[in-house]
Design a protein around this nucleic acid. Structure first.
Lengths: 241, 241, 241, 241
DNA sequence: GATGAATGAGGATTCATTCAT
DNA sequence: TATGAATGAATCCTCATTCAT
């Protein structure tokens, strides 16, 4: 039933196979293409919905964003939205995942084998700058990184974005300071993410011309915290009681 | 005590006792006590409402907190709540101010004349520890420090709590590093507040036994950022490009 | 109990008997003066409340006027208001009665024995002009003449103001056209009041400079309707079917 | 019929059938009928809601009418009402427009080319009678013609119904007295509407058996006012000072 | 009498979600 | 699948009225 009866009125105009550049070849594909196309259309819808969600989240914040607004922005009906996402939270999650993936793509830098040998300030430049650009380009990123203003945030601080950031930083730390215990890596990564979460809103809120200075401050905070860690395997070296 | 905080709204303007110059003797006390008692009831209600608001904010977060829930928790009708506060935002603001005042009381430490002479780690102990205690004791503090999850937060990051924290840190910085320009003091204070905002949720969310470690990390972050500032009047000393 | 224990703090300052110019004489009056003074103060309160009510009705219309707003405008507490009026409607009624009385004072003209002998246009001038002035001076008059926008208006069209207007016009008609049956007098008066009610808002709403023209139109309407009535004892004279 | 009144809100803009140029043939009808049916349901709901609103307005008056009552009377949930109308005022406006349209249909008489040649009393019969019937049949008409009892009424006397009545009367006047200046036409129309507004409630409130008499009076008022206007181009002819 | 705190039902409006077509 | 109508509980807030002091 799912694959029958293409809705009249549209099917004539848009020949599905004609639009699918991935269509590859022989007779058996006629049957295979149909579900694929369905899926493709679904993917497109999802993309559109997430695009719309990103805009609305960025404009209104997490709590004030309504599913109806997202659907309207995407140009679809509320019912359609619920065909792809069970609820608002799922949309946020999916969007966060998309951002996480995109961030990952952006930060392949981290896998540069040269990186561990560089001086820490240079490493921070490479890590912080694209992160800032990423957050500035699409303010919804930060909305989703922070999550709803409910205490859920306190107990489950973990959006996909948070997780992604966390694991990337942990990876970097393992490379920079191989002597760290796993527990310390994780704690240090957590704190680093916390610093990002605390300072990125400042950067985003600042007028364009103040941003570079604030980004620099962000780097200084990270440098001050991480240098002892990567140099001696502990951040405590600077602590004199 | 009854006359400390003027009652919210307009009612305070018509304080009967203030208008009656004859209410100074012994006999007049009976008459004067009555309005005062009424006023006291109002004050008490405000206190109860703010207490209730604190609980509800702590439990449900900013956006999910409803005025009806606050009223119910305070054991009064919704109408009563609106006799004292025009809307939810005003409650949050008043509560934040109360916290700000309380925080101020807590941190008179900052005015200890010995403080500027102490080593930075000791200073941080004195500053961070009560702050953490304060936030842990009443989780609503953090809810209000963070504010609603709307983008308003990005443009106007300013709750009374935020402001209070900011100015206290700025004062401290001026004492510790008298050579700093005012602009640098303010920027540094802003960043410091950002660090607190970013890391306090971690501390709060952590299970009791992990807290001390996280608090220590928080101090390390601050130490790493602030040491260069107070030592050389700039945080840049450690930055090698 | 009602006459005992004058409220402390005020009684000394204002000797009741001193203020009452109607105090007439002997010893027995000491006892009588007290309640009178009570009453006098009550009258004053009532006056203030009605003044306030007039303002608020004029500003917000009948339905949108709240008892709390009236009390606030009068500078008293809501409780005090309810000491003098059982509910909002009673305030409107009392205010309407006050206006009715005032209107009556204004239109003693109607009792001018010369009036019946004058030409109708002159009579209309004498009747309409002060009415218009009266309504313009205090817009609450019209609010109360019209009453609430509920269908009660349709079934019980009768505010004290309405009644007053009705009876004054009826009286005038009886003088002008003694031959009319009572039924016709009443119907004609009713219609005349309707014309006033319909056209006065136009006059009130018009900018100052257009008012005279509209008042003139109002007179023309009345003239056209009433001339046949007073001339032939019937308005039908002009009707040719 | 389905496409007459565009659905309220924005949804009308996305009328699918309008966008699909292929939906002309026989086969496409199935597809075209579906959205049309949905649209039809919306139209029907709007009709039902306005019907319900008419009843409730008639029963309770403007201010006392609640959106919930309208929804309940229409047998739908409050949410549904708000899918079609943004607020109470919009409902009143839409309803007034519906009445205005209906009135127009009722009074095509005015376009009878014979009309200007008839004697004024006959013209008034033709104009007033259907108007009275119209108002009697559905008392909400008058509620909406009068509008809310707020002072807004005084400044902006204009509901769609008011406007419709105004323009119809102006048109009639232009036909009857072509010599009138436009300014006089408008003023005269305004005054005529005022007379209707003032006297129709009388007619509506009167017991069935008194109505004819009151309607007759209404006509007499109009005749007295309008005869001079249409006969000499001025109402002033009867005014002797 | 006066006060102003207290009430609580009720009103307008929203929104996540479901359902018939 | 897509639609958009439908839902209804929940939200914020108001206001006539009462009550303790």
């Amino acid at each position: 039933m799912a694959t029958q009866e293409p809705a009249a009125g549209e099917s004539a105009a848009q020949d599905p196979t004609a639009q699918d550049p991935t269509a590859q070849g022989t007779a058996a594909q006629g049957a295979a293409a149909r579900p694929r196309k369905r899926q493709a259309r679904g993917e497109k819808r999802i993309t559109e919905l997430l695009d719309a969600a990103g805009q609305v989240f960025a404009e209104h914040g997490y709590s004030a964003t309504t599913t109806n607004a997202i659907a309207a922005r995407a140009g679809v009906s509320p019912g359609s939205l619920y065909q792809y996402f069970p609820n608002k939270e799922a949309i946020a999650e999916a969007l966060a995942e998309r951002y996480a993936a995109r961030a990952h793509a952006t930060q392949l830098i981290l896998e540069d084998p040269e990186l561990p040998g560089m001086p820490l300030p240079a490493i921070l430049d490479r890590v912080v700058d694209p992160t800032v650009v990423f957050h500035c380009e699409d303010p919804a990123v930060h909305v989703l990184l922070a999550g709803p203003d409910s205490p859920a945030r306190l107990h489950a601080v973990h959006s996909p974005l948070h997780e992604a950031m966390l694991s990337r930083i942990a990876t970097l730390l393992r490379a920079l300071a191989p002597g760290l215990t796993e527990a310390r890596v994780e704690q240090t990564a957590l704190v680093t993410v916390g610093v990002f979460k605390g300072l990125l809103p400042l950067v985003l809120a600042a007028p364009e011309e103040h941003r570079p200075a604030l980004v620099h401050e962000l780097k200084l905070v990270l440098l001050g915290y991480l240098r002892p860690v990567v140099e001696s395997g502990s951040a405590d070296s600077g602590w004199v009681e």
